[in-house]
Amino acid sequence: MDMAFIIETIAKIVVILLVFSALAGLGTYFERKVLAFMQRRLGPMHVGPFGLLQVAADGIKLFTKEDIIPQNVVKPIFKIAPVITAATAFMAAAAIPFWPEFTAFGYKVHPIVADINVGILYVLGIMAIGLYGPLLGGMASANKFSLISAARSAAVFISYEVISGLSLLAPLMMVGSLSLIDINNYQAGGIGNWIVWSQPVAFILFWIAAFAETGRTPFHLIANDHEIIDGFGTEYSGMRWGLFFIGEYANMFFISFVIAIIFLGGFGDGSIAGAFQLLLKVSFFFFFFLWTRAAWPDVRPDQLMWLCWKVLMPLAVVNIVITGLVMMF
């Protein structure tokens, strides 16, 4: 391994960390604004122009707040749990191509930390490990609400891993590769080649599963404020809570990238226009996360399980079988 490669990789990691930490902050700003507008409110208005500096104010608050470790918690696990959430969210980003290759100062840059040949498997696997954040945090918290939340997160994440895995199987069978770059190049021919046209069911299923994996509103029961306070985050304060938060928002961005790359053609043929199209698609999916939060009610945990095992999973399996038959004949 030569020096240039190590330096380049470290630079990419730092850039991704910084950009997506900042985006997670901005994401909260947009979430507040969009939700506010949809509910005929104004949202943050007072810190900075149009409340833009609210993010900075929140950051200062989170960083300087006292880090309380309650008395009866299991201390090491309680302390490490938020780190797991944030770390796994960012680790998943290693295999996601955020931008097509470009040349800067005569140097060819691949804006992906590691183009491993099992890219999507790695992303899904790492996101699945993210389950340990809420699970361990909730179980170590010595709080009944956190415990309920931990149990729910285990149930929801594991169930919806099945959906996201099975729904991805059909497109992957068509592409014949697990690398996100290969999946992207498979659809490089333009809108007509997007996988969403040949795999609409898989697209919808994966999208639904994405809501469960990020714990967003129709499936927000892991930290459902009106039932279990903040769920696994109830006992957390300061930056530890902030890490959960950054993890959640980073996850939303990354899963949006994954959906856009797998089903909606990604960055297309790699031109600048394609790259901006990718950003547009990602923004749409991120916006949709906020949109549903304003529009839809939460489902009950048992309804969520019911939906997963009795509706979505059979659909996913049928989809795989049909895809296989079509490919065979």
């Binding site: 509910q39 104004l42 949109w291 839809w296």
Partner: peptide, 22 residues
Amino acid sequence: ELFVGLWVVMREMIKFDIHTVQ
């Protein structure tokens, strides 16, 4: 029905009929 919900909130956002008293 899910799309009705989505449409309602989107309509309110586009109308931008803000009721906040600052």
